[in-house]
């Protein structure tokens, strides 16, 4: 199951800001709890188990160091 490689969200900066600001007044534990809830809610929205498994695998992958190095 291939996941989308292009962004589907309009206003990416606005989305990111909303995400960060929702946790502004939270303790670290509260942030983690909220993130866990968000994962569960979004997983239920996606519904497709194969897609969710692919997302779990991608999120769990450790990046190889060089892939984050800028190419010069």
């Amino acid at each position: 199951m291939a996941l989308k490689e292009t962004l589907t969200l309009a206003d990416p900066d606005g989305f990111y800001q909303e995400l960060i600001e929702s946790q502004r007044d939270m303790s670290e534990d509260e942030q983690q709890l909220m993130n866990a809830k968000l994962v569960l809610i979004l997983a239920n929205e996606v519904g497709d188990r194969a897609k969710i498994s692919a997302a779990i695998a991608l999120a769990a992958r450790r990046p190889m160091g060089q892939s984050f190095m800028p190419l010069v």
Partner: peptide, 21 residues
Amino acid sequence: SKGSRFYRDAVLELAEMTDFA
């Protein structure tokens, strides 16, 4: 683990608010 504890508590809190959990 701490992470699985967060997921557990997240399920329990969501279960009070919405049926899917």
